[in-house]
Design a protein around this nucleic acid. Structure first.
Lengths: 200, 200
DNA sequence: TCAATAAGAAACTAAAAGTATCTTAAAATC
DNA sequence: GATTTTAAGATACTTTTAGTTTCTTATTGA
């Protein structure tokens, strides 16, 4: 170890990066304070002083990356489509890009201990993500309403969330999402469902 | 420990049950040979002799339960519907029941280390499950074709798999699947998509 | 410059994972 | 039934890992 010590934000960034590297290469089950300390070039007590478990550290590292690389919120994208279909395409393509940023590792970290419901923090993260997703679709539906494509933007949350749920599942399972697949999602499922919903 | 020793299948069943109990109550991260041995009333060397890791044991215990409680394969259910819609309902309701059998714990075990792709066994399990799902929809589509509801049972695998993907995602996220939700899936997404596909 | 803070090293403890040895119950064979 | 084989189980032991403590000292702020 060099005589130069890092402190504060610089140290924290190195720790978070080391954490994410280990998550990506070895998975959550191999994430220990010992390995993080080695990779980050710090010492175990430093980690124990700041986080109460490797899992807490993993979540914090993920949230750090969300903040850093989020390309802005999904529901704040400037929509440029001239139709419901185009808006859907734009938004979902953007969603796919933001998912790629994190990769599958982080989501399995996310789900890793969801079964035991021991983490309110995870629940909060999921709830927040759903709100953003719903809001992104709300904007699209409002534009489609304004254009006269549909009668009203009113729709159940489940219907709004379906594309994101399905796309996240593809990512969980390491299923590549190409343009053909996205086209199927939009043209075969979303457009008929969203347009049909308005005729009832 | 009593003087009576279990051997073979009886011992294995006790070990698998102990494993599943621990997975359910404590999650995969707390599954150790030590705790399994305690709960199953056996000794650690017995476990080390048969499985090379707690993870391998977890998978085997899950597969054991699949065999025991599968209520038969999804694609072998006797379909009694008189329409595409009814067949879809019957099959998906049955799918939901079979998912309930395992609960969310087992799925997070399933996904736990998927990111590292270190387990061909998991990949095989997923591939098998997809084949069964596709075949279940194939039967439904064939019946609908025979009834004249649609022109042909030809359809992409992604379209056939969509309901199962979405339902599995709901389960991953501990989202309850009530009848209203299933109705939305069938009536708003599946029926329009499957029927529309035939008009092209 | 001095004081406060926290990073880092290293030793230590506790717990858990894994291994080795031996006994003996249960099953198979003669 | 007696004997042999197999594998379950007990127990001790070794290794590894997780977590804690103590101390030094680099860095920052006053």
């Amino acid at each position: 170890m060099t005589k130069t010590r890092r402190r504060g934000a610089e140290l924290e960034a190195a720790i978070y990066q080391a954490t994410r590297d280990i998550l990506k290469s070895d998975g959550l089950s191999q994430l220990t304070f010992s390995t993080v300390a080695d990779v980050a070039g710090t010492s175990k007590p430093v980690l124990y002083r700041r986080w109460d478990s490797p899992f807490s550290l993993a979540l914090a590292a993920i949230q750090d990356q969300i903040k850093r690389e989020n390309h802005g919120r999904l529901d704040e994208v400037v929509l440029t489509g001239t139709s419901l279909r185009e808006d859907l395409f734009q938004t979902l393509q953007r969603f796919i890009i933001s998912m790629d940023t994190f990769g599958q590792t982080f989501v399995s970290t996310w789900l890793g201990d969801l079964d035991t419901n021991k983490s309110n923090q995870i629940q909060d993260m999921i709830t927040d993500a759903k709100k953003i997703d719903i809001h992104a679709i709300d904007r699209i539906l409002q534009r489609a309403t304004d254009r006269g494509e549909i009668k009203t933007p009113e729709m159940s949350a489940d219907m709004k969330l379906m594309p994101f749920d399905w796309l996240r599942y593809q990512m969980f399972m390491n299923e590549p999402i190409n343009n053909e697949k996205l086209t199927m999602l939009v043209d075969d499922f979303l457009m008929p469902a969203y347009l049909r919903h308005q005729t009832l």
